[in-house]
Design a protein around this nucleic acid. Structure first.
Lengths: 234, 234
DNA sequence: AGTTTTGATGGACGATTGTCCATTTTTGAT
DNA sequence: ATCAAAAATGGACAATCGTCCATCAAAACT
């Protein structure tokens, strides 16, 4: 049985970590000072050194915690997915783009840590989506798809599809970071599936979300207000 | 004629900006202090306040400068591209993944600024690939491809292809950030073209670089025809 | 109950931050 | 050569940074 002592201890550790994440999400890493952290956590100054031995270690623990939360979220969603590989991929993609995982707070935290990742290897380790479980899940699913389709060069296609899908998801996150208000989750998912449908028509073409027909305006004729700076034929 | 006075002035301004970028690339944003900057620039402490009115403005100017350099690089490459839209897209993709643009220094700088973008709107403005010229160039090319191919829902496809291509490029950059040593430019390009080839078989399937075969193997007969009908039963 | 043990406190501390300005040096015009 | 204007210098400055420890409070054990 956990004594009241250890219970409080763990509770305060967590409070510090959450305070760091809140501050990073809200004010950014450069403004996340010791004073800011302990004020948010409602604890005393010495706690950081007591529990983590210094601010750097605390920040690292916060990065680890955030990363863990991300993977837990993805895996929780995956367990509700069916068996078919295309369903699993669809679940991962939609999950990764869902409000529960892709939101302002998480994106702020994720990119703040990545910005420092280059110079703090300990943090880089946790901000890598590619390694770890996610890549394995996706690759596994694509391998099955490609195998049962009898595609030539199956391993290469599966590997490239995995790499490409992960890159697309990363790109969508960046999109959200830069334009959180104008970001459209359904559009993001649709684009990814459009690419996947082009590569694996038998597996993704009929998926409900590929075509924008749903509720979306049927191909707005003058959607793109982009100027075209050049180009022979206008 | 520019007097020696103004000439020196401009030279020092630039020296400060470069010092910031060097420091950000090397040490990260959090360790880029005024002391660090003026030491790298070999100038005196007061210069920052003199020329930029404060450190924040200098950092912002550095972000602007870096962004400008990126676009200049892309546009320079584009001018050597041919007329055909697929050639232009290929040039953009390869250029964006080339050593000249995608390298450790640029990636470090780019992501360091992005990490702070959320809390510094002035910087966010410069760290956006999506707005600005790049998106317009790509969308313009895809529009032509889609139009001459007679694809149904042409505007939607062009828009999605643009969005997807940009997301893929972003994702590849993230890949490079996290694994600069194991990153493979050719593989990154191949994956992007594999996706594009799946979407526009007539335009990208025969492109020399889809296969990693090095020898280019001008359109291996086994490869190109088989890619499309993979769907129902291969 | 008393005693030990451990977590928690908050201020002291030196180091470093960015800003600013009195001063010196350099440039361009007289 | 002289002088006004502009640019560059480098140290003073208060504010803030993160670390650490003497002290206190409370839980756990005897």
């Amino acid at each position: 049985m956990t004594g009241k002592r250890e219970q409080n201890r763990e509770q305060n550790r967590l409070a510090l970590i959450c305070a760091v994440l809140d501050s990073v999400a809200e004010k950014g890493i450069s403004e996340t000072s010791v004073s800011e952290i302990i004020q948010r956590a409602g604890l005393s100054r010495g706690m950081i050194h007591l529990h983590f031995g210094g601010k750097d270690n605390l920040v690292q623990a916060a990065a680890h915690h955030s990363s863990q939360e991300y993977y837990d979220g993805i895996e929780a969603l995956l367990q509700t997915a069916g068996d078919s590989p295309q369903k699993r991929i669809e679940m991962i993609v939609r999950g990764d783009l869902s409000e529960r995982i892709l939101n302002r707070r998480n994106v702020s935290i994720w990119y703040a840590f990545r910005g420092e990742a280059r110079n703090r290897t300990a943090i880089a380790e946790y901000s890598d989506t590619r390694d770890g479980r996610l890549r394995g899940m996706i690759h596994n699913a694509f391998s099955r798809i490609v195998r049962e389709a009898g595609t030539p060069d199956a391993p290469g296609v599966a590997r490239d599809a995995t790499h490409g899908t992960l890159a697309l998801l990363e790109g969508m996150w960046t999109d959200f970071l830069l334009h959180p208000d104008r970001f459209d989750r359904d559009e993001a998912a649709r684009i990814i599936f459009r690419f996947l449908a082009a590569m694996f028509p038998a597996h993704f073409a009929l998926t409900g979300a590929i075509r924008p027909d749903q509720g979306e305006a049927d191909a707005p004729p003058v959607e793109a207000p982009q100027r075209r700076p050049e180009g022979p034929a206008a």
